[in-house]
């Protein structure tokens, strides 16, 4: 199937542009949609042009929505060690979770901020391309069974490697548990702290007026090709305050021109304070 042709059709008839996603992964995911729905390419094009509900579902299918509470538990102490230095002296600070999926990382970070006594100074923004994911982030309801292990793994890490002196967390302050229905439910006061928007990193202007102290964008850009990645790095650079930080996934590495405008420390890329006429 000529998936590049299809991506052009999608771009012309819908708000979604996947033409600069990594070839291999977008192709594989499109093929899955086609076989799951037993469609021919012509039928897929037809449906894409005429069926908005189908398009929304397709977008969910071809974007990756994996997320976990405290994904990569061992990395959080290192990440927060850097972030604490950036935010601790600020009266208020802004954090953007770009590509937040169902929001588990948003709340993981917010729980750490609360433990550090910094949450009341934080303004948290979360965006995702998928409307359904944004709604899930707002709801904050997650599978208990799946995430229980994650919380335990994170607790273990904290014991060995405390974050700002925090060695253990009483999660019942933040999450209600409904074992019978296999649910974790994020408490209202935490959910109320998060401002959510549907937003496509590839196309839309940033939906917020303010700049950011921290941008989390972990395991999102791996689905984009290198040239689109550079474009997004440029946009993040523009949206960060000097000294602000971009947090990438464990196995992502910034490449290209904008690499020189950040100081890398593990997964944390801190915008350097150097003055640049063009991009400041």
């Amino acid at each position: 199937m000529d998936f590049k042709h299809y991506l052009q059709v999608l771009k012309e008839h819908t708000p979604y542009d996947f033409s600069d996603y990594s070839d291999n992964s977008i192709k594989r995911r499109l093929q899955k949609v086609i076989s799951d729905n037993s469609l021919s390419l012509d039928e897929l094009i037809q449906k894409t042009q005429n069926d908005q509900v189908f398009v929304e579902r397709l977008v969910e299918e071809i974007t990756v929505n994996t997320t976990e509470l405290f994904r990569d538990p061992e990395l959080w102490p290192a990440i927060y060690e850097k972030l604490i230095n950036i935010i601790k002296t600020k009266k208020t600070f802004n954090i953007w979770h770009a590509g937040c999926s169902s929001g588990m990382e948003v709340y993981s970070s917010l729980i750490i901020l609360s433990e550090l006594g910094l949450a009341d100074r934080a303004r948290i923004y979360a965006t995702d391309i998928s409307k359904r994911m944004v709604n899930q982030c707002k709801k904050g309801v997650y599978r208990y069974d799946f995430n229980g292990g994650q919380l335990k793994a994170f607790e273990k890490v904290l014991k060995k490697n405390p974050i700002g002196g925090i060695k253990s967390i009483d999660f019942s302050k933040y999450l209600d548990v409904d074992v019978d229905n296999d649910k974790y439910i994020v408490k209202d006061y935490l959910r109320d702290m998060v401002i959510t928007r549907q937003h496509d990193l590839v196309q839309d202007d940033v939906p917020f007026y303010n700049k950011f102290d921290v941008i989390f964008c972990r395991n999102v850009l791996i689905y984009f090709n290198a040239s689109l990645q550079s474009k997004i790095y440029q946009m993040f650079h523009k949206q960060l305050y000097p000294g602000g930080a971009l947090v990438l996934g464990n196995h992502e590495s910034m490449t290209g021109f904008f690499k020189t405008k950040f100081k890398k420390n593990g997964a944390v890329y801190q915008k350097t304070n150097a003055f640049h006429f063009k991009y400041q």
């Binding site: 990594s22 070839d23 291999n24 992964s25 995911r29 990756v64 994996t66 395991n219 791996i222 689905y223 996934g249 196995h251 992502e252």
Partner: peptide, 10 residues
Amino acid sequence: YDGTFSLSTE
């Protein structure tokens, strides 16, 4: 195809 790796969390 370009002789690089890509990672995915799907």
